[in-house]
Simulated assay, not measured.
Amino acid sequence: MKSLPSGRTEPVVSRLAFGAAGIGNLFTPVGEEEANAALVAAWTAGIRSFDTAPHYGLGLSERRLGRFLRARPRGEFHLSTKVGRVLEPMSYPVGDDLANGFAVPATHVRRWDFSADGVRRSLEASMTRLGVDRVDTVYLHDPDNHMDQALTEAYPALESLRGEGLVGSIGAGMNHCAPLARFVRDTDIDEVLVAGRYTLLDQSALQDLLPAATEHGVSVAVGGVFNSGLLAAPRPDATFDYTTAPTRLVERALRMQEVCTRHGVPLRAAAVRFALAHPAVTSVLIGARTAGEITDAAEQAARPIPNAVWVDLRAAGLLPGHIPTPDGDH
């Protein structure tokens, strides 16, 4: 798995990264053995970048990832987590956390906190769960509705943590491009993580975020390259951005799949390779729950794709002509 510098402080990341929301029991439970097997498969495939957050399963994702990484040499992997949601224990836990998307007992409540103190407390708790004394990258997690506090309190706190050496790189992670572009232009962040906005179906990151990142030398990690399922397996009941996919997008994805199939290429392979083709993108996060999912993603990322795929997608009006695509493999 090819590795590249990430951010201006240059920690090394693998081009494919393991997104650990799934092993935090996103939507449905994942057993301990199954979660560990997914991580083992990722490591075996050469993946050395791992992304998590307190939000994922109320800390379950961080605990599972930390247990796995403790047996690996610290200098051989890139670890990122997030701040912005502080976990507070419930006095009388009742029910589950499915209202927030995770099949775990509701042992804690999340509280938005982008204060300087909240950032430090969140990171300290994350490092305890992960079993590490430093984190390679810390992102402000979904500060969309808290931008003033994120910019005036949370960001300076991350700058201080970076200066103290507890954090290698700092950044922000969101589903929306405009606030990320604001961070790129108005702060000295190293990286951004954008989910679902640079895919075969949605290239809105090209309007502002990716040009700004290129201009300012900020690295971009792209998540959600399958748009939560539609680009992995297009069909009428597929999901797009975690809800039922609109008919027009299902039809568009099916047309893309037809083009790829003519050239013997799975659509999911084109989806991964497309996102990696932009020069500002240093890595693509794959949210895997099983060993099979992450092994397949690694194989698709390495699969040769004929240049004719991109030519035909453009000719069919399925990709704009100005968008960067990978160099043809044959």
Rank of each mutant, 00 (worst) to 15 (best):
S6M: 07
G7I: 02
R8S: 07
T9N: 11
V13D: 02
F18N: 10
G19L: 00
A20V: 03
G22T: 01
L26F: 10
T28I: 03
V30D: 04
E33N: 09
E34L: 10
E34I: 11
N36R: 15
A37P: 00
A37W: 00
A38I: 06
V40N: 01
V40D: 10
A41Q: 07
W43D: 03
W43N: 01
T44D: 14
I47Y: 00
S49P: 06
Y56K: 04
G57S: 12
G57D: 09
L58C: 02
G59F: 06
G59A: 01
E62T: 08
E62S: 07
R63D: 01
R63F: 00
R64E: 06
R67H: 03
F68S: 06
F68C: 14
A71W: 03
P73R: 13
F77R: 04
T81D: 14
G84C: 15
G84D: 14
V86D: 13
L87A: 10
E88M: 14
P89Q: 12
M90I: 14
G95N: 13
D96N: 15
D96P: 09
L98F: 07
G101C: 04
F102V: 09
V104R: 02
P105C: 07
D113F: 11
S115Q: 12
D117N: 10
D117S: 14
G118W: 12
V119L: 14
R120Q: 15
R121K: 15
L123I: 15
L130E: 13
L130N: 13
V132Y: 07
T137I: 15
Y139F: 15
L140E: 14
D142G: 12
N145W: 11
Q149G: 13
Q149V: 15
T152S: 15
L158K: 04
L158E: 08
L158C: 09
E159Q: 11
L161V: 11
E164G: 12
L166V: 10
V167I: 15
G168W: 07
C177K: 01
P179M: 09
A181Q: 04
F183W: 00
T187H: 11
D190G: 00
D190T: 00
L193W: 06
D202L: 01
Q203G: 14
L209F: 08
P211F: 05
A212I: 06
H216M: 12
S219P: 10
V220D: 06
V225Y: 02
F226P: 12
D237T: 06
A238C: 02
V250S: 05
E251C: 01
E251V: 02
E258C: 01
T261W: 02
G264L: 09
L267M: 02
R268K: 05
A269C: 00
A270C: 03
V272C: 04
V272H: 02
A275V: 02
A275D: 10
L276F: 04
A277V: 00
A277Y: 01
A277Q: 05
P279T: 07
A280Q: 00
T282S: 06
S283D: 09
G287D: 08
T290A: 05
E293D: 00
I294V: 04
I294R: 04
D296F: 03
A301T: 07
P306K: 09
V311L: 11
V311T: 12
D312I: 00
D312C: 06
D312E: 13
L313T: 06
L319Q: 08
T325A: 08
